[in-house]
């Protein structure tokens, strides 16, 4: 649905520094794709290239079959009706009512009055704001404003929804509701969603895949589970630690321990099965727990433990755990798995 091919962007006023540098990625239709990065990493630049609010300095951005930079004015307008966008600060028209804001893109597209009315009512119903149709944005809470933003973005029936820090200005509870609304759109309408954030928690809740952006470069990209459980780049590790806290028991951290230092990762059902105790009994290995956590990635529970294994047949224990579907990483060197 969306692909970036060696895309770079240097702003005229950017002092020669590239805001994006050789970005390559692709987003499949129906996917919820996250982009995470620190402030100034180039996230907004990336998302704005998708609907042509910015043009790349090099490389190509293709969306729904079109090379965005090659589109003429009308082609770009047409693309923008197929790609909705919501914003951190909502960007609603303060001079128009809730209904007026939602109707705006329809009027821009030249839809007849009656049809605009019907469609607006339908959209407000979808986001649960029918009651507030006549209010002005200044009379709404942040969450309500973002719902208007979502209804407005959906007005022209887009295939893609771009979310630029759509929940960053909201409190945790409202964030939850808006994320729920967004994933609902993905599930029910099959909308492809590109979601930008600086919070790993948002990625964990709704995204299928994620790209980690650092100073204009994609430093890591993959399924959310993989990036979460086995982050490869220091940036990704830092983001994971921000939401999960340190796992604990990493080498070089705290008191020296005897035995082999391993990290076990349980996913799905394995998280709740009493695997560890059984394996320890069978192989005569003793374990001490140095750190751990249990969390959920969307609907999948996962657990991670850092252990030190002593006595017994450590190699057999590792083999048994692996056979049970537990991923074992050796933290003190040696061959993993």
């Amino acid at each position: 649905m969306i692909s970036f091919d060696a895309v770079s962007k240097t702003y005229a006023q950017g002092g020669g520094r590239a805001a994006l540098d050789g970005v390559a990625l692709s987003v499949a239709a129906g996917e919820v794709f996250g982009v995470i990065g620190a402030s100034g990493a180039g996230k907004s630049t990336l998302i704005r290239l998708i609907n042509g609010l910015e043009t790349p300095s090099a490389g190509t951005v293709r969306v729904d079959g079109d090379d965005v930079a090659a589109l003429d004015v009308d082609g770009l307008r047409d693309l923008r009706r197929r790609v909705g966008m919501i914003f951190q600060h909502f960007n609603l028209l303060s001079s128009k009512t809730v209904a007026g804001n939602v109707a705006f893109p329809l009027k821009l597209a030249g839809m007849p009055r009656e049809a605009v009315k019907r469609r607006t009512a339908e959209l407000l119903d979808r986001v649960g704001l029918s009651e507030l149709a006549g209010r002005y944005p200044a009379q709404l809470s942040g969450g309500q404003k973002q719902r208007v933003g979502v209804a407005r973005a959906l007005a022209t029936g887009p295939k893609v929804l771009l979310c630029d820090e759509a929940t960053s200005a909201l409190d945790p509870e409202t964030t939850e509701q808006i994320l729920e609304l967004i994933s609902g759109l993905n599930r029910e309408l099959g909308l492809t969603i590109v979601l930008i954030t600086h919070e790993m928690d948002v990625v964990r809740r709704v995204c299928d895949r994620v790209a980690v952006l650092e100073a204009g470069k994609v430093v890591e990209i993959g399924a959310v589970e993989d990036v979460f459980l086995h982050p490869q780049s220091p940036t990704a590790r830092r983001f994971v630690r921000e939401v999960d806290g340190p796992l604990g028991g990493e080498p070089g951290e705290g008191a020296a321990v005897d035995g082999r230092l391993v990290r076990l990762t349980f996913r799905g059902d394995a998280t709740y099965r009493p695997i560890l105790g059984a394996v320890a009994r069978e192989t005569g290995v003793d374990y001490s727990i140095l750190g751990g956590r249990i969390h959920r990635l969307r609907d999948t529970p996962y657990g991670q433990l850092t252990l030190s294994l002593t006595g017994g047949d450590v190699a057999a224990a590792i083999a048994r755990l692996t056979a049970e579907g537990v991923r074992v990483d050796l933290l003190d060197g040696g061959a993993a798995r």
Partner: peptide, 8 residues
């Protein structure tokens, strides 16, 4: 946002 909605 207006441009993003396809406004001229």
């Amino acid at each position: 946002a207006s441009f993003a909605m396809g406004a001229r």
